[in-house]
Simulated scan of single mutants.
Amino acid sequence: MPRMHALELLPDAAGVEVVRRDWQVLHDAGLPSQLDHRGATNTPHVTVVAAPGLGAADEQVAAEVLGTLLPVEVRVAGVALLGGARVTVVRLLDAPDALVRAVLDVRAAVPAAQHLGWLPHVTLARRVPRADVPGVLDALGHDDAVLTLSSLRRWDPDAGVVRAL
């Protein structure tokens, strides 16, 4: 399976701290956490689109369509579980309609986009055994938060490079 290239929205410094607090809470509880992922490019983000490849035209469309909306506030709306026997734990985001429309426009320009539609979220933990889900939910709690998405980046897994757009 090819590695997925991505266009991603990044929160500002305050938003990064909100997400990293959740990562730390899970880590401190002895549960899987994105904090355990030590890759240099691992940072809180919201994926706009992932595909086996992205070109300069895809980057240009994303910068033109999304750039005018940044910075934009999104509200943390709850916790969701994605996957099968092991799940990915995410915080869902309530995004303004203009942002949702813009992301769908960007996604429509990428014919090989992974997944249909767009589910705005930030990932807190991957490959969590289902037996650990109650502990994850207890650890995370139910606090609301607002994140300000302030920039757009391109992730190229083949080159191992992230680049601001």
Rank of each mutant, 00 (worst) to 15 (best):
G39E: 15
V18D: 08
V161Y: 04
L137V: 15
A113V: 09
R91Q: 12
L119V: 15
V18F: 11
H45K: 09
W23Y: 06
V16T: 14
V79I: 15
L26Y: 06
L7S: 01
N42T: 15
L124S: 02
Q60M: 10
A62W: 01
P129S: 04
V162L: 10
L119M: 14
P157C: 10
A13F: 02
L99R: 02
P44I: 13
D105T: 15
L82D: 07
A29Q: 05
P44E: 08
L70C: 09
R38Y: 11
L140R: 10
P2L: 05
P157Y: 12
E8Q: 12
A112G: 10
W155R: 04
Q34Y: 02
R86T: 13
D94S: 13
V76C: 14
V106L: 00
R86K: 12
E73T: 13
D156I: 01
L165V: 09
H45W: 05
A145F: 08
V74M: 04
L81Q: 08
D58Q: 04
G83W: 02
Q114C: 02
V65C: 06
W155A: 05
A62C: 02
G15I: 09
V128K: 02
D58C: 04
D97A: 15
A164Q: 09
V136R: 02
A131R: 13
A63L: 12
A56V: 12
